[in-house]
């Protein structure tokens, strides 16, 4: 990077670039915007960032991000403890919360099994999940990992664990998105949609 401003400003611009989708130009805009117009908000942002990076860890039960030992969802008593939804990321928890009527608890893998990348069962917390299954409270697991090969393999692996504990495991369905047109659906998705057809 060619130094154009003071070293501190250059550093700020460079640091902002760690955010997804932020290139040198947008980083520069963000830095100048904060410096020229939003000093207070900039300070709040820096405090919030510092505090979050320091304090936020993982929920002891579901492994999602949380600054407390248990996350907000795991603390809710009104949920059904017999159903557990397994997802890959904290963002998936929000997606399921907003987009479905699911009212059980979650388990967040923070990834998926990927032998080629060296990610094994323990890296995605399956040792922890196994302990939780052994407690006997869970009766059904909804495997909502992504519809990719790794997601499927992860789901299959967890389904096997469930079977060993005598727990029912279900996989979310594949298919054509609502409002979609068959003509424009990729053949892979369509093939899955046909394999998963049901009787009316």
């Amino acid at each position: 990077m060619t130094p154009t401003f003071s070293p501190l400003i250059d550093e700020l611009i460079e640091r902002l670039r760690c955010l997804p989708g932020v290139g040198p130009k947008s980083a520069q805009r963000m830095a100048f915007h904060l410096l020229s117009r939003e000093r207070d908000k900039g300070k709040q942002l820096s405090q919030s960032l510092a505090k979050s990076m320091e304090d936020i860890g993982y929920c002891e039960r579901c492994r999602t991000f949380s600054e407390n030992p248990l996350c907000q969802i795991c603390l809710q008593k009104s949920r059904d403890p017999a159903v557990l939804c397994v997802v890959e990321t904290p963002a998936d928890v929000l997606a399921v919360e907003q987009g479905s009527h699911f009212r059980g608890y979650y388990f967040v893998l923070m990834g998926h099994l990927s032998p080629l990348d060296g990610i094994g069962p323990e890296d995605i917390g399956l040792d922890k999940l196994s302990l939780r299954l052994a407690q006997g409270e869970i009766k059904e697991m909804v495997l909502a990992t992504n519809p990719t090969v790794e997601g499927d393999a992860t789901a299959h692996y967890i389904a096997n664990m469930a079977k060993n504990h005598g727990i029912r495991a279900t996989r979310i369905a594949y298919g054509v998105p609502i409002g979609g047109e068959l003509e424009y659906i990729d053949s892979n998705t369509l093939a899955h949609a046909f394999n998963g057809r049901f009787e009316l």
Partner: peptide
């Protein structure tokens, strides 16, 4: 583009497929 439909590997066959890929790589 896809030439034809995906080979529907499931369960253990899926893991075998992943194994093949690791060997081939």
């Amino acid at each position: 583009e896809s030439r034809s439909a995906v080979w529907p590997l499931a369960g253990e066959a899926l893991f075998s497929g992943m194994y093949l890929h690791e060997v081939l790589i």
